[in-house]
Amino acid sequence: MTAAEPDRQAKIGQQFIQAVPHMRELGIELLAIGGGEARMRVPYDERFVGDPKTGVIHGGVLTALLDSCCGAAVMSHPGGPAGTATIDLRIDYMRAARPGRAVTAHATCYRLTRSVAFVRALAFEDDPDDPVAAAHGAFTVERPARAGKSGGGKA
């Protein structure tokens, strides 16, 4: 079985967003996915503001964006995990996100072992060299149920 036809990857990506209520609620868009990398964007929204005096979105929105993007990168890794969940995620906030601007995240799953995926990501408006935030995380790797295991048969 070939693991990574582009069509299959794109389909997985769209399903990934649509299947996750909180990503829909934030208006997150999937821009690209495949080969252990993912790119997502969250629009600016006044409901996301952390400090009305400045109009800057709260760091929590970036946490949700980066966590989602890292999870998608893990799922798109050629190693083919069947599922994933965050073990830990560290976010460094370099500066405030510019009010009124969408924020894009790019995540790379740079190492996948049998049980753990290691991921890093950046969040920025336009230029990855001028990041708003960076993330580094470890995620679980769920393996597909073995063929022949009882109860797992296809119709």
Binding site: P21, E25, H58, T63, A64, L65, L66, D67, S68, A85
Partner: peptide
């Protein structure tokens, strides 16, 4: 609220929601 769900199969809160709640 259902909009906070990240994994509808379990179902479970979105990791970003949990992180944001802790940070707030």
């Amino acid at each position: 609220d259902p909009k906070l769900i990240g994994n509808p199969m379990l179902p479970a809160l979105h990791g970003g929601v949990t992180g944001a709640f802790l940070e707030l």
